[in-house]
């Protein structure tokens, strides 16, 4: 149960489930943390994350972005991903919620140091 599976499930506030590759989902530091078995939070036990504040429509786009990013991250001159204009605000908020890269990196490094 606590093992790291290849796929993880992301569940939206309106109960839509998205099964995505773990490797793509952990693009989001928040998700990565949730699923980190080292901490042993509930999410990492079940390999499932519930998002109470993101609906299915938005979460679908987020998942799509995860894959889009994973596919193109090493190539150059990639066109921006297309998304419906009416979702933009909600997407920005979701992105803000899921992505807090800077301190995450920093803290992660220091924790590594601390534990030798």
């Amino acid at each position: 149960m606590a093992s790291e599976t290849e796929y993880v499930t992301l569940v939206s506030s309106d109960d839509y489930s998205f099964v995505v590759l773990r490797s793509s989902a952990i693009k989001s530091p928040a998700i990565k943390r949730m699923l980190d078995p080292a901490y042993g939070f509930a999410e990492s036990k079940t390999n499932t994350c519930h998002f109470e504040n993101i609906n299915g429509l938005v979460l679908e786009k987020v998942c799509e972005y995860f894959y889009y990013y994973q596919k193109h991250k090493d190539s150059k001159d990639v066109a921006d991903m297309d998304f419906p204009i009416e979702l933009s605000l909600e997407l920005v908020m979701a992105a803000d919620y899921l992505d807090s890269t800077v301190p995450f990196e920093e803290n992660s490094k220091r924790r590594q140091d601390m534990l030798i």
Partner: peptide, 25 residues
Amino acid sequence: SWEDHGVCMGMLTDVLMYMVSTQAQ
């Protein structure tokens, strides 16, 4: 104790990541 503290604080800061990130911003 130190290691526990480290682990717990790591978890705490992660949970509070949003707060930390805004702090950084």
